[in-house]
Amino acid sequence: MRFLLACATILLLAAQAQASELTVKVTKVESAEGGVYVALYGLEDGFPSRPCRWCQRVPAQPGTVAVLFPHLPPGRYAVSVYHDVNGNGRLDTNRFGVPTEPYGFSLDARGSFGPPSFEDASFTVADQPLALEINLVSNPPAPEPEPEPNF
C-alpha cells in the first residue's frame, strides 16, 4: 500500500513539474466600466462557443489588464476575451450578431462572418511560462436608418 501511495505521489509531482503558466495581457481597454472576461480553451473544449474550462473576470481599467492561468498542462490552447462594458455578464451583439462590445482572440485572429477557428487562434503551451497579448477591437456602431423623406 505504501508503495502505491509513493508511486502516486511521484506521478502527481511529475505532472505538476510539467505544468506551466500562461499570462494573457489584454490591451486597448477603453474604460474602467464593467469587467474584462478571459476564456481559455483546450483543443477539445469547443472554442469559442461552449462554456470554457478556464475562465476569469477582472475589473476593467483603461489600457491593459493581465490575467494569469497557472498550472496548465502542455498542449494547444486558444483564448477569447471581451470587455463587458455594461456589466451584464455577456458579450452584447446587434441584431445581426455582430459584437457591440470590444472583443479579441489569441494571436489577434479574425474570422470572416463569425469567430476565428481554433486552428487560427491556437498556440502551444510547453513547460515554460508563456505570455500572450490580445488587442481588443471594437466594431463601429450600426448606422442609424435614414429618415424617410416627407413629400
Rank of each mutant, 00 (worst) to 15 (best):
V38G: 01
A39V: 01
Y41L: 07
Y41W: 03
Y41V: 09
Y41Q: 05
Y41C: 04
Y41A: 06
G42M: 04
G42P: 05
G42E: 06
L43E: 14
L43Y: 06
E44Y: 09
E44F: 03
D45W: 03
D45S: 10
D45Y: 03
G46Q: 04
G46L: 09
G46K: 00
G46M: 07
F47W: 01
P48L: 00
P48I: 00
S49H: 12
R50S: 13
R50G: 11
P51F: 03
P51R: 05
C52Y: 11
C52W: 07
C55W: 09
C55N: 02
C55V: 05
R57G: 06
R57M: 12
R57E: 14
R57K: 13
V58P: 04
V58R: 05
P59W: 03
A60L: 05
A60E: 09
A60P: 09
Q61C: 00
P62Q: 08
P62L: 03
P62D: 11
P62M: 08
G63C: 12
G63W: 10
T64W: 10
T64Y: 04
V65Q: 04
V67N: 13
L68Q: 14
F69S: 00
P70N: 06
H71A: 15
P73D: 06
P73Q: 14
P73H: 12
P74G: 05
G75S: 13
R76F: 02
R76T: 08
R76C: 10
R76V: 06
R76P: 08
Y77N: 07
Y77G: 02
Y77V: 11
Y77Q: 01
A78P: 01
A78D: 03
A78E: 03
V79Q: 01
S80E: 03
V81R: 01
Y82D: 06
H83I: 13
H83F: 15
D84Y: 04
D84E: 04
V85C: 01
N86W: 13
N86P: 07
G87P: 03
G87A: 09
N88V: 06
N88L: 13
G89K: 02
R90N: 15
R90L: 14
R90C: 11
R90Y: 15
R90F: 15
L91W: 08
L91P: 13
